[in-house]
């Protein structure tokens, strides 16, 4: 939960001619959506509840936002929920793993997102699993959907989430001996100042103050 933020990038300490200084961004609340969810989401939620008796225990939040359904799952129950979704609810395809890093949410900073696609029913949902930076372990879903192998390696490389049970979790995009996890918010962009005709342009991460 964050409060409203005002202003955007702009040169601090001088006149703001961009006009972005007057912007007010409203915060996004992360509560659960009330039933009915709309379109096919009710069907999915009902089927899952029927097939998985521990539904309310494993699934902490159901969010329907902008026409997309997201199920927040506890990481201990992830493999069970995923197997049931694949076998009983026919979500045959997992479109890979995405990682997100929220540095402000202590206790749930690192998030792994699994978009699922059911080709037989033409439905798309998303699973979201959160874990803390101090214990970045999430069970691996390679036994459920084998295509997640490289995607989990990428999320490990970029965010540092360790997938327990992965058959070979190594860096995939950066060189094998790289330090750090580049896509985390506290990892620097690493650009250099560019010199041209006697003037220096700082790297993009230093150019403007983002609020």
């Amino acid at each position: 939960m964050t409060q409203d933020q005002s202003g955007m990038f702009g040169a601090a300490g001088t006149g703001d001619t961009s006009g972005y200084g007057g912007l007010v961004r409203q915060s996004v609340s992360f509560g659960s959506t009330e039933r009915p969810y709309g379109s096919y989401f009710d069907e999915v939620a009902d089927d899952l509840e029927r097939a998985y008796p521990d539904f309310s225990d494993a699934i902490t939040r159901v969010v329907v936002d902008r026409g997309e359904l997201t199920l927040h799952v506890k990481k201990e129950r992830l493999v069970e929920v995923a197997s049931i979704l694949r076998d009983k609810l026919k979500f045959e395809m997992c479109m890979g793993v995405s990682g997100v890093h929220y540095p402000d949410r202590t206790g749930a900073e690192l998030v792994a997102l699994y978009p699922l696609l059911s080709m037989t029913k033409n439905q798309r949902i998303r699973l979201e699993v959160a874990t803390s930076e101090l214990d970045p372990h999430i069970p691996s879903l390679v036994e459920v959907w084998a295509g997640n192998n490289w995607h989990e390696r990428e999320v490990f490389d970029m965010f540092g989430i360790i997938f327990d049970g992965h058959p070979g979790l190594t860096r995939i995009l950066m060189p094998d001996d790289w330090d750090g996890h580049p896509q985390r918010k506290d990892y620097p962009l690493g650009g250099i100042a560019v010199e041209y005709k006697g003037a220096t342009t700082p790297a993009p991460s230093n150019r403007r103050s983002y609020r």
Binding site: Y187, P188, L189, G191, I192
Partner: peptide
């Protein structure tokens, strides 16, 4: 020639 538009950690400048 210079890293181009990718002034970051992943590209040799």
């Amino acid at each position: 020639s210079s890293g181009g538009m990718f002034n970051n950690y992943a590209i040799v400048q």
